[in-house]
């Protein structure tokens, strides 16, 4: 369940985040403050509060969600905000000359992004993106609060029955560790590999 929730929302969040990030990097005066505000709100409130808002308040507008859908929705929205930041930073790190050169070569904006800008921006984006995935997988533990039976919830349910807190949660922690630690290592090695061309001091 943890894998399912994380997988679904990482996938959706990445798509949404990339779209937002690309739009934001255009520096449109109208859209940018909106996205900026969205990102600030997502970063400024605890994830658990966001989960409660999605789960308890959307029904008041007539949108009834199952716990699982609500969890995926909340994680997608939050993830997209953080990924948007990363993507924006990555795109802005590409030198301006690249934009100018590609537009004077007659590429339209989508071609510019796809063929020239993004391949270079990916170098800056990838390491923090993988790091962000780790954070999101860990945040998926929070949705146990609305009763989604994922890894943490299973631990909680077990501990209610057999009072072996140390053992149960060591096991839960070990399972999370098995998912997260390889990702952290990947993120670190990507960072080392992709910044080779920078002059070291």
């Amino acid at each position: 369940m943890t894998v399912l929730i994380s997988g679904a929302s990482l996938f959706l969040g990445t798509i949404l985040g990339f779209l937002l990030g690309m739009v934001r990097s255009r520096k449109n005066r109208l859209v940018n403050p909106l996205i900026g505000f969205f990102v600030d709100v997502m970063r400024g409130t605890p994830f658990i509060v966001q989960v409660f808002i999605v789960f308890f308040i959307l029904p008041e507008f007539g949108v009834e969600l199952e716990a699982f859908t609500a969890a995926v929705l909340a994680m997608t929205i939050m993830g997209s905000a953080f990924i948007c930041e990363i993507v924006t930073a990555g795109i802005l790190a590409v030198p301006k000359g690249q934009w100018e050169a590609s537009s004077s070569s007659g590429l339209n904006i989508l071609q510019q992004l796809r063929l020239v800008i993004m391949p270079q921006a990916m170098k800056t984006i990838l390491p923090p993106l993988v790091g962000q995935y780790v954070l999101l997988i860990k945040d998926s533990s929070v949705v146990s609060a609305i009763g989604v039976v994922e890894l943490t919830r299973v631990g909680w349910l077990t501990v209610v029955r057999i009072p072996e807190g140390l053992m149960v949660f060591s096991l839960v922690a070990a399972l999370y560790f098995a998912i997260s630690y390889p990702l952290i290592r990947i993120s670190n090695s990507l960072e080392r590999k992709l910044t080779v061309n920078r002059v070291s001091l």
Partner: peptide, 23 residues
């Protein structure tokens, strides 16, 4: 450092919350 960074905070909280009494 690594074990803290690769496990969720909620699990750490539960670990202490349910674990300390067993000790």
């Amino acid at each position: 450092i690594e074990s803290i960074r690769s496990t969720p905070l909620l699990v750490q909280i539960y670990f202490l919350y349910f674990g300390l009494p067993t000790l």
